[in-house]
């Protein structure tokens, strides 16, 4: 087991953000966290990463696990002159050669010498993914990886992620709104709304009443189609 959360609860300024979270991630597993805005998805991810401590409960990350983290956004002070290549090379495990190889895998070679502040949303997301991958992660944590990318780019982004996962053989925990794009490649879906409403394999979860309650009948039915398609490929 790579990650294990037991009875995790988080309060901020007296307000309950997360409660009774039990969650585990096995080696090689892909877990997708879904849920409405403000349901605590990003907070849960920050707890898993050890960036914040839960109010109560235990978080166990297997000793010495290398983690790659792709944050939702990068807020770089505009007074910081930093090229994409330099940003990638800040990773402690990076060498110049490795940076260039990952950059070329993700189609970033052309913009390596551009300032980080002057690249497009899609380029920024791919840069952040490359930075996460440079840490040679056993666990890859992605917070809305396709945010700010147009529809075509989104599918490509998830293709990149799937490709990289196959290459690196890592586990993935991912927060995503793009259910239809991620659900087929996911081992486990966790539906979060302050607590874990329901969790399980995609094919089961889309039929779960709590899931339908949150996302609506229509979404659930169309998602069931996606998972169904996936089942047939096997």
């Amino acid at each position: 087991m790579l990650v294990d959360l037991q009875q995790v609860e988080l309060k901020a300024r007296g307000r309950l953000i997360l409660e009774n979270i039990n969650l585990s991630v096995e080696k090689g597993e892909i877990v997708t966290i879904v849920g409405p805005n403000g349901c605590g998805k990003s907070m849960l991810i920050r707890i898993i990463l050890g960036l914040i401590n839960p109010t109560s409960g235990t978080v166990t990350l297997r000793q010495g696990t290398r983690v790659g983290y792709m944050p939702q956004n990068l807020s770089l002070e505009s007074l910081m002159p930093l090229t994409v290549e330099r940003f990638l090379c800040l990773s402690p495990r990076a060498t110049k050669e490795k940076c260039q190889r990952f950059a070329s895998d993700l189609g970033l070679t052309r913009i390596l010498n551009n300032p980080v502040n002057a690249i497009s949303g899609g380029e920024r997301q791919r840069t952040l993914l490359a930075r996460a991958l440079l840490n040679e992660p056993e666990l890859l944590v992605l917070d809305e990886p396709a945010q700010g990318i147009d529809i075509n780019g989104q599918a490509t982004m998830y293709e990149y992620i799937a490709e990289m996962r196959d290459k690196l053989q890592c586990s993935i925990i991912m927060v995503s709104h793009d259910l239809h794009l991620v659900i087929a490649g996911t081992d486990k879906v966790i539906c979060l709304n302050q607590h874990i409403c329901c969790s399980g394999r995609p094919a089961e979860i889309t039929k779960h009443p709590e899931f339908i309650n949150i996302f609506g009948e229509q979404v659930s039915t169309s998602l069931a189609l996606y998972t169904h398609k996936h089942d047939h490929e096997h």
Binding site: R46, G50, L51, Y69, P71, F87, P92, N135, V141
Partner: peptide, 14 residues
């Protein structure tokens, strides 16, 4: 430099 650019990334990277 790394902690200045993004402290969360820096922390996750050890």
């Amino acid at each position: 430099l790394s902690t200045t650019v993004d402290k969360d990334l820096a922390k996750v990277e050890g």
